Amino acid sequence: MHEPPTMLLTEFRGQFDRAAFTERLQLVIQANPWLAGRLRRTQDKGVVVTCPESCDTERHFFSLADIGLRIDCQQYSEMVSKLMAYSIPDGSQSVDKDQVLFTVLHTETGDGKFAIITSLCHCIGDGFTAYRIFGMLSHNQPVESLDAVRIPNFQRAVDAAIGPVAQAFMTSPWFIAGSLASCLRWSPFSCGLACVRPEWVEDAKKGHDATSGVPFLSTNDILTAHLCDKFDAAGATMVINFRERLEPATRNHAGNYESLAVFDERCKNPAEVRRLMMNPPDFSGGMIQMPGIMDMLAFRYPLITNWLSIQQDLCLPSCQQVVHLPIYKMAGPFFAVGVVFKPNPGKIAVLYGIRDSKCFKALQESAALDHSAPLVQ
């Protein structure tokens, strides 16, 4: 209920066809009326989404000539702060109110360019859902109706897949106290955005010992371990999409079917990250025993999320993509956050935020990241 909305931004160069885009948006919402729904509290204190009989697209689409937004990857935090004024609130602020849960913003960004920014309330969809809708807005992709009815008892299956130790860890009062204290103990987040050096990743793959019991290393394994190492992490929480991993959830299910798997200090070893990912849907091997109280209070457990496998492009007629970015406000009870994504086809980038100045400097000097390489094309 308190998670911020998933915001996705793509900047384009070309002539924006507002009428065609509005028509496309109308088709997407008609096929997925839950996008036009509202959050309502039930008698048993639960929250449901009510769908309207008809939808006014104008409540979901805003075209603003110029809000002063300039896409500058070196000024990411300032750019995000400006966009927060146009974001939808989190679910806790939307219950029993006439508050839309999905919006699309079009605005000029200067020099003949413009941006499309989508916002989806996390209560009705996770990152995978946000990208499925995002992709449908493309003129060359089919519009599909996603199943927004929650699979009964699915969370029980997720809890079993993550394992009892991880469940006990994330609900421990010591872990919760450490997460809340991190906001007071550490400095505000420092954010960085950089391209990944492909040659560095390839060298890491070639240097892998195939006799270790792990047949290969993926790009995600390598980058997850590298981020955890530079974060000086005691462990990590990693976002796992359980669609196609736990039946009967498939890519056609909208909603929240992602959850956090927990990893101990082995998260710094890419081979151990790969080992954890080799036996889906069983992720219980990530944390074998509970950390000590002092470790939980120290709270050096970053949140790592990889968008490479779920990301979809937004294609508009007669327009060229300049850059794609996750709009992520670095705040809340986290020690550090790492997001792996594609700013453009053929490029991989990392968005990171951390409260520890020494770790931030280590990432700025990382051989894996090229902070001088442009994310735009």
Rank of each mutant, 00 (worst) to 15 (best):
I327F: 03
S172N: 15
R156D: 14
G292E: 10
G213W: 06
Q377M: 08
V28N: 07
R185D: 05
L180W: 09
L303E: 04
R18S: 15
E258D: 07
C359W: 01
L180Q: 14
A233V: 02
T10D: 02
S138R: 01
H60P: 02
L308A: 03
H60T: 14
V149W: 01
K230S: 12
D56Q: 14
Q26M: 11
I133E: 01
D72M: 04
P142R: 12
E108A: 15
R245C: 00
Q93Y: 08
F263W: 09
V262P: 01
S94H: 11
P215Q: 09
T171V: 09
V48G: 05
V239D: 08
R24Y: 07
L314S: 06
A367M: 11
D96G: 11
W307F: 12
D282I: 06
R40S: 12
T10F: 00
I88M: 05
L39I: 07
V214K: 02
V48P: 00
Q93I: 07
G285P: 00
A204S: 13
T305H: 02
A234K: 10
R185T: 11
A181W: 11
A20I: 05
Q26T: 15
S119P: 00
R38T: 11
D56P: 04
Y301I: 15
K347G: 01
I310N: 01
T57S: 12
M79R: 09
C359V: 03
D282M: 03
S81C: 12
L369F: 15
C319N: 10
L369N: 07
H226S: 13
G192D: 03
P152G: 15
I151K: 02
L69Q: 07
L246P: 01
D229E: 13
T237I: 15
L137M: 14
N32Q: 07
M330D: 03
R18Q: 10
R245I: 01
H139T: 08
A349K: 02
I162T: 13
M170W: 03
L8V: 10
S284C: 00
P291S: 13
F299T: 08
R13P: 00
I29L: 13
T305R: 04
V262Y: 06
Q43W: 02
A160Q: 12
V165K: 03
Q99S: 15
E11Q: 14
S87G: 12
S372L: 09
G91K: 08
P164F: 09
C55Y: 11
D229P: 00
Y328L: 14
P317L: 13
L39F: 05
L25E: 04
N153S: 13
A331N: 10
N241W: 02
D232I: 05
D232F: 00
R266Q: 11
G346K: 03
R355V: 09
A373F: 07
